[in-house]
């Protein structure tokens, strides 16, 4: 798999998120731990809320608009809410955050 170097991990606040603009739309990079980052679609399946603006806790994020909670491992909405956000392969190496290039390249924006 080819990886694209996006940023240093410290560019993302601990328990915070940053946005990467891609041809598919915005992707959120969620930093859940000192060296743990998840990548997932930045748009909430409920009403399009920007998930990267949400509160990051455990390995989840809460949408800032109406508090749906998503598990960043699976992308599934938690609790009673139903919906899923797309997740993307990401890795942290030597302090750099890398995201899978193939995944980005192959898809087309809707």
């Amino acid at each position: 798999m080819n990886w694209i170097d996006i940023c240093h991990i410290d560019d993302i606040p601990l328990r915070g998120a940053r946005v990467v603009k891609t041809p598919l739309g915005c992707i959120g990079l969620f930093r859940t731990g000192e060296a743990e980052v998840f990548a997932a679609a930045d748009s909430c399946p409920h009403k399009g809320g920007p998930l990267s603006e949400g509160i990051v806790h455990g390995q989840s994020v809460t949408c800032p608009l109406h508090n749906w909670v998503f598990d960043l491992n699976t992308g599934e909405a938690q609790g009673a809410d139903e919906g899923r956000i797309e997740t993307f392969p990401v890795q942290v190496e030597g302090g750099r955050v890398l995201i899978a290039e193939a995944v980005l390249g192959k898809r087309r924006a809707a």
């Binding site: 996006i6 940053r18 603009k21």
Partner: peptide
């Protein structure tokens, strides 16, 4: 200030 902007813009690379 930087945190208000996207950390990267891949739309250009993809193009």
């Amino acid at each position: 200030r930087a945190q208000y902007a996207p950390v990267a813009n891949l739309t250009l690379e993809a193009a």
